[in-house]
Every structure is written in structure tokens, then in C-alpha cells.
Design a protein around this nucleic acid. Sequence first.
RNA 1: GCUCAAGUGGCGGAAUUGGUAGACGCGCUGGAUUCAAAAUCCAGUUCUUUCGAGAGUGUGGGUUCGAUUCCCACCUUGAGUACCA
Length: 1119
Amino acid sequence: MQYNHLDIEKKWQKFWKENQTFKASNESDKPKYYVLDMFPYPSGAGLHVGHPLGYIASDIYARYKRHKGFNVLHPQGYDSFGLPAEQYAIQTGQHPAKTTEENIATYRKQLDAIGFSFDWSREIRTSNPEYYKWTQWIFIQLFDSWYNKDTDKAEDVSTLIKIFKTSGNATVKAVSDEEITIFSADEWKAFSKIEQEEILLQYRLTFLSDTEVNWCPALGTVLANDEIVNGVSERGSHPVVRKKMTQWSMRISAYAQRLLDGLEKIDWPQPLKDSQTNWIGRSQGAMVSFNVDNGSEKSSSEVKLTYKELEALKELRQNLSKAETILWDELKNKKGASKFRKKYTISTFLVDYVCIAKNIIIEFSGKEDEAARTEFFNNEGFNIIRFTNEEVIENVLGVVSKINSAIQFPKIVEKTTKNKEIIKEENKYKIDVFTTRPDTIFGVSFMTLAPEHELVSKIITDAQKAAVEEYITATAKRSERDRMADVKTISGVFTGAYAIHPFSGKKVQIWIGDYVLANYGTGAVMAVPCGDQRDYDFAKHFKIPIPNIFEGVDISEAAHIDKDGTVIANSDFLSGLKYKKALKLSIYEMEKRGFGYGKINYRLRDAVFSRQRYWGEPFPVYYKDGMPQMIAAEHLPIVLPKIEKYLPTEDGKPPLGNATEWAWDSRAKKVVSNDKLKNKTVYPLELNTMPGWAGSSWYFNRYMDATNSNEFASKESLEYWKEVDLYIGGSEHATGHLLYARFWQKFLFDKGIVPVDELAKKLINQGMILGTSAFVYKTTAFVRNGCGCSDEKSNDDILNKIPTVIVSKSLFNSDDEFESVVKNYLIDNNFLNPNFADLIMITKTALHADVSLVNTSDELDVKAFKNHALNSEYKNAKFILEEGVYKVGREVEKMSKSKYNVVNPDAICATYGADSLRLFEMFLGPLEQAKPWKTSGISGVSSFLKKLWKLYFNGDVFKVSDEAPTKDALKILHKTIKKVEEDIENFSFNTSVSTFMIAVNELTALKCNTREILTPLTVLVSPYAPHIAEELWSLLGNKESISTVDFPIFEPKHLVESAKNYPISFNGKMRFTLELPLDLSKEEIEKTVMENEKTIAQLEGKTPKKIIIVTGKIINIVL
RNA sequence: GCUCAAGUGGCGGAAUUGGUAGACGCGCUGGAUUCAAAAUCCAGUUCUUUCGAGAGUGUGGGUUCGAUUCCCACCUUGAGUACCA
């Protein structure tokens, strides 16, 4: 019986399907193992041979684990929302669901042909309403949560509201919007519902905000940072501009530190971890405030407080003394114009209570700086009333009545002069900067603000106004892309204003420059030209002084960036210190003096979650009085509405703006026609949809209980499967899918929905399979300029006679050779008059030829090439052949349709079989590495399978002997078991394929056909080549599938050797080998070796200096 | 620029607690079989060579009895990222 892969593969694929061989159970005595592939987006082009690489590797591992006695979950599904289907819909009007459905059918057929052991009963599709119902549900969970920094996890918003009700927001440590106003419990209660919702939105993990987004006009949508490559869209390379829009965002920044920490406990590739680490971009340093100089010594009355001071203030407000509490209990109920605030700051003074509307300050007497306070407050027009602690405790009512009379009869106070007013205006500015090198603060010689910085317009002097405004206009015109591309040009302009160095008190110039980015840090930097190259270049360019604060370092040519080993100088209290100490001390001093504090900054930005697309998950959101409202979970899914046109509306709304039935009836609890919007209980629904990463951020959990319609997944199934044990996919998802998915997983963990906070224990990035493109070399003929024959007509005549010539690869090595080969051909065939030969110039163009037209020896099927639909213009081209054939040039490139180098797995399966494809893809090289595909190589694995098959046959008859196997055969078998097991555990699949080949070659040489050898051998190859293994297994007399048969056990006793063929080397160079028994002592070995005639020949009469003998390994003679 | 990975025959690649470099396969060469081809089988295939042997894992150094493997410097290629303060 011949090995017929077509019949065998079809037979077993049918068997597996009918018997549900790979259906995983959520209940089992076996240990669990979860093997997952990154699910594909079903594109219209179908799979090429590069796509299944990772699936084959994971399938081998899954099958291996089944043999090892594990209950294996190995599911597959489709990431079926996405732009291509929508683009296609825009062009053709066909509903994306239909396109998607068709593409999935193709994918499924292709996947089935390769013989994967997927549990298809758990298939999921992100575009299926039964699936995205739960994506919407997770969105609601995020909306209902806030991040509590004290417990370091996400909590339900109800806990936040409780805190607001009892003590306001001053004590809350949360990840929230930056501009948060402090309010008390009473103020909270007094807020309207809408005001409360607005405040809560500043804390929710998914929130609406006006964000500057990457708007792509050509695609009509917003793109995430990772969807932009070199300033243009990843898809279609369209230009991208910055634009402000109201968008849903995800507060992923709350998880920055945990996303970083989590990397340490997962076994993921280092490069992937590195790129996540870079993406999160943690930098440790300090936040420092510089006051803007106002020409006067006096500090302002409305100075913003530093972060540290604000923190301290919150503390103070919470911990009032006994007397303070008694008085506050009386004052806090005053409303309207007589409203009092406690522990309020006026300028740099902290006052106990203040009524701003009536200019009344109430303080406890006995403060150290009382005189200064009185003077300052009087100057500012306040009426100061002071009490002692005792007065308040003993007679609070008397105190209150004094206050009341002050409210009723306000003291007429002298207002500050107009002049002072102006100074105050100038006074209130302060520039916050983030720096990673606070130790170099004495090296600051100027400051730079981003052109977009809000302070710029406020601090510029009249003299510089025109120059600054001109500069700002000029930078605004330059696109982000230009600014990125042009890093070398130094530009900037002086604002005319100065800042005060917080330590030295010296004045430093404030500049603006576009090397400072508005959206990183605070959009301002303290420039230390001696320690930062960009600051250095800027200073040099504008001739700003460059003070040197490093001991014994030359900074005449470039900045000194090294921090280790450098000693700080000229820096007051930091002088003489090294980096680490200086860093600590500088931060300590800043915190003590109150203008700076240690801070950790992250590059990771909150993720924009809205897309102006149709083919994505609709938000479960409607708007009431402009505020977003969640639709209750029991009414999900909110299904995508039908629309006529998939483009944005004419007034710029997203495609869902075209829907006629897209309003929420809050009474009937259903989506209704837009006509009903005039009703009081009907509200407009959200028009954006979710981005591509929404559905893929939690799908691995859904597989655990894919058909559950009541829950996201049952508690038991989540508890059983926990996380993915092995996840295989491409490295291109490093900062997209894999970061967002880890974020959601941590969130779901915080909320107690999933039991683990990392989604995959181990992850492997499979490398890309590259295509081997084929090239033909085409001529283009020109008439040389200035050749003397100015008659244009005759030029045309010469050219018209010349046909397109296509030259075989090996006929030329250079362009010159190419030209002469072609000319000779043209002359020989009378296409060119030899007299004109010098007038003609021939150039070479390499053209992609479809790889399917080329055989394994790089020979082009010329006839098929000419008849190929794509090559109609070369129908009459002349081919210069070598030895009767046309040889193409080869080059390795990414596999793509446009390069005509795509190889279809279906064709490979049909010709060589799925088992050959599986073996070959593994045999190409290490899984993680990029490697080129060459179809010719597949004959090696194909003939291996034939040889394997032959071991079980005598001619056409299946014949396996029941005799005892020979020692040699057992040795081969166990050597193979050991190696294959090690290889699979190490994901070194390429080497185990060679091991199989060696085993089969050796067993064939021994003519071994004993059952005792062939039975375990069948199991060994089964993960790699499951179809042939099943067939041989059943021929061996088994009724059940091979899939869960125990993996053979390695027995070391079969590998024990009695002798070793020692390599004998001289000075480390191996010269010959010598077979010696292993039980020989070192002395005996030395004696035997030294007596050997080859040794004597090598020695040439010299005496060895030393003889190294490593028993069982090597003998080295040192001369 | 920064971070990471990798450089081994004509090609894909193998070999690391430092111990016979080039396993296995492709391709190529020769042979057998065949009318012929495909398929199959056998032999050879790193380079140089005066056929004794010698050199050799990107380059140059180092450690070692011994280095593809460890250390230092450099070169090249690929990937990611970027005025990130």
C-alpha cells in the first residue's frame, strides 16, 4: 500500500470532527493545560503559508500535552471586527457582516485542511452580538469603577460616592483627571445631579474627555498611537493630523506601575517585555516649580500651591484640633455670601477660616508670624478676627456672634492700589517642570517652554511679543511629521521673561522652543546645558551661558551626559557629591523648602477608546442632558443598527449618525427609531464604536465558557482554567493588544471577576515567514542624448524595432554586461542595425514574476508567464535563455500579494499533504526567528514521511514483526524519545524534525520493523504529523484515536555505552580519533594514546608538556 | 540617537555547565534503475592543497590545555522606539 496523504488526511480530519476528539471538558481529573493562539482577523485574502506557523507550533504542543496526560484547552476564533470589511462595505455597499462571514468560511476550510486539534465547539467571533454583549458589559464595569491608590486597585464607584458623602474629596487618593477641585462632604451633597456626575466622570476608569487625537481624514477616524507609523496611518499610509474631540478614554495610566511590575512574573520574550517597558516609560525624578520673576521681591497673593503643599493641606483639613472643630461646626452651615472655608491658602499663608465674599479672615491667635500676616492681609483688604483656643472652647456662641456682626457690618477697608493689582497679575505665574536630573539643578541657565504652553502668552514682554507670536505661528504650521523628521534644526525665541532659580535666587531666561513637547511632562523643561545635549545645542545656538557643574569634566564640545562616577561642583550644598547622593539630597531639600518633590513620571498615556467607524462594538451608552448614561446589563447586547451608507455623515458625525433607528427608550428599555427622540424618555445613543482592541482584550477568558449566555464566563470555568499556559503569536502586538489585554485582565482581577491578574504564563513570538520573490529582468531602450542624429523620426524608427527583451539571470553580472548581452542579441536577430548600436542605451528593470510560474530549480515557465493575466504587456517579449531555460533572480522579501510571492497552504496540502506542511514549517528554523520560505525544500520532509511509512510495510503489505527488538534499535528509539521530549519542552521544533529523520534513516538501515519499536515511534511523531500517525496507529490494530495515548517513556539504560571514540587533539586541534573502553583509568588512557603510532607521528619526536584527559569527552596533548 | 536581537558552507540551519564545527534537509556533482522522464537508491559536496597536510564560525584583541560558546573594542544586518527632559 502506497502512502496516500490525500486519502489519509481527509479520513482522519473527518474522524476527528465526527468524534469531537479535541473537545475539552471543564471537568477532569487530569491537570489542565491551556494553549492559545492569537486569533486571526479573517481577511479576504485568506491564509498564506506564513500564517499557520504559530498555529502549527501550538498544535504540536497541545497534542504533546494530551499525550502527557493533560486536559488540554486549545480553542480558536476570529477577531472579526475591523477596518478592511468596513472599507469593502464603503466601496460595495455589502454589509461587513456578510463579508466577514464569507472570509471566516474560507479561513475555516484552510485551517481544517492543516489538521489542527482545535476545540471548535468553543469558537468565538468578536463581531457576534452574543460575544460583544460581554465586551459592552466590561465597558460598563470600567465606567462603574475608579482607581483607589490607597488600596492600589480598582473599586466600585459606590465606594467613592460614600467617601464624598462623608468627607468630600480632599482625602481621596485616586487616579483621576489632573484638574480636580477640592470639595467637602456638604458641598458634594449640595451639588446638582449633573454636577455630581461630572465630578465622578473625572474619576471613572473609562471617561469622556476632550482629547487631542490623531485624526485621519482619509479614513474618517481616530487612530491610536500604535496605529500610526512614521506619522502616517498604518493602514493605507494616509496623513494624520492632531484634532480635539470628545472621546471615551481608558485610564490605563492607573495601571502603569502594575503593568510594569507584572512583567517580572511572566515568562514572555525579553524583547517584548523591553518594548512594553519602554512604552510605559517610567522615569524617576522630581517635579520642580520655578517662580516667574515679577521685578519685585514680594510673592504673590494667588500663588498656586505645589503638590506637596496641597497634600499637606488635605491632611490639615482632615485633622482639625478640638477648638478648630468646634468653631468649624458652627461656621460650616453658613451658606451663600457668608460661606466659610477652612484651612484656606491666601498667598503663602494658610488661614484657619475665610469668608471670601465678605473679606473676613478668622484665625486662632498666637501664630509666630502674626505681625507679618496682619500687615499682609490688611494690605490685601481683609478684615482679620482672632480668637484664642480657650475663647472658642469655653464660649463658642460668643465667638460666633462676633463673627456674625462682622458679616453684617463689614469693615470698610482700603483697597490695594491699581499699581499693586498689576504686579499681582504678573506675580501669580509659576513654571512646573519635570526632571530626571534634579541633582543638576544648579546647572540651570535657562528654561524652555513648548510653544503651546499656556503660560507663554501670559509672561511674554511687550518687546518680545511680536517675535514670540511669529514663532508660534510658524511652529503651528509645521506638522507633527515635519517636526519629527527635522530634529537637527535648532529653533526657539526668548520670551523676555525670567524665572527665579529656586535655590540660588538668580534670574534665568525663559525661552520657547519646539524641542520641548507640549504633551510630555509639563510641557516645560529646566535647561541644564552642561548635562543635556539638546539643552547644550540650544544654548550654543543662542549663545546662552553654559555653566559647568561637573568636577574635572570638559564641556567645551558637548554636554556631559554620564552620571555615574561624575562629581557635582559649583552647586552649593550639592558640590562634591556623586550622582546618587546628590539626587537624594536635592529632592530632600526641594521637599523641605516646598518648591519640588520626588516624582515618577510615565510616558504611557490614557488610551482613546472611541472610533468613528461602523464595524465595531457599539457603546452601551445614551446621553441624558449631555451626560453619558449606561444601559443596564440585562438589556445588552446593544446591537449595531442597520445603515445605508458606511461613511461619516455629511455634518461629520460617525457612520452610526446615518442610522434611523438609534435612540434609547429609557422606559421601554429598548432601541427605538430616532423619530421618538422628541419624547421625554427617549435619548440619543452614542455614535462612536469601540476600537479593534476591545474584543481582543478579554477573549481568552471567554473560551473557558464560550457559550454561557448568563455570564461573562462561569466562576467555576474561570477558576478551573485560570490563565493561558502557553500563548503564541506575533511580536507586532507588543504594545497594542498585549498591553491592553493585560490592563483589562488586571482590572477584571481587581473586581473579582477573574482569578488571576496576568492572562498568560508563557508567551512565544513566532517569527515571520518571508517570501522568496522571483524576478525577471526586462530591458528599456533609449537613444543617447547628443548622439548627433537629431532626426527624431529616425530615432523612433530605431526604438520601434526593438522589442522588450527579458534576460535570464546568470547571463550577466553587472549593468554593463546586461547591456552588451542585450545588444548582441538585438544585432544577431536583426532588431538593431550594428551601426546604431552605440546610439542606444539599454537599462535593466527587475520585475516581480509570480512564484507559481517558477519551478524548484528557479526556472520560469516562459509560456505561462506570457499568458499570465498580469503580464499582458509582455506577450510578445523576447526571452534570452541560458541552456534552453529562463532562470529567475531570487530575493527574500515580506510575503505579500503585491510581490507575487505568496504561497498558499491549500496548494501545499494538496500536493504534499498537511503532515508535510506541518513538518516543513517547523523544519525551516527556530520558531521565533524570521526565515524565508522555499517550496523546493519541502521534498525533504515529504520523502521522510514516505520512508517512515515504508518501515511498517513489506512491499505493499502492512507487516510489523512481534519479535524482540535489537539492542541497536532500542538505542535509536530511546535516543529519539529523549531528544524529542527535550526539544518540545524547549520549543525547539526544528531540531526534533531532524531527530525523526535520523531515527527513520537508522531504523531503515537496520531493516527494523518490530512492533515494540514502531508503536512508540508512532506516538512520537503524532504531534507533528498527526494524520499519518493516526493511520499507522489504526493499522497497528488500535481502535481509538492516538491523540491521548501515553507518551513513550525514556529509559537511559538503552543508551549506556562501553566504549568511546575519543577525539585526540594537539594544542586543542583535533587530529584523529581513537576508540577506547570507558572503564579505562586516566593512566591507562595516557599510556595507550602515547603508544599510538599516529600520536608519535604528530609529536615529531617532541615531548608533550601536558596531557589533559577528560574521561568520556576528549584528550588534549599540549606541545 | 537609544534599547534589543543576530552574524557559522551555494541556501535553511545544527552544535553553548567551554571539549570531534558544519548534524538534518535543500541545492549541486557523479553513478544505478528507465526507451525517456518522474520517483527511488548509492556515493560525494566548508575552503586551500605540492594529497603529507593546513586554514576556518563578521573583524581585532583577551582569558584558557582547549573558544562558534566567556570577556573587551569595533563592523554589519534586522526589529522596536524616539527631540521623553
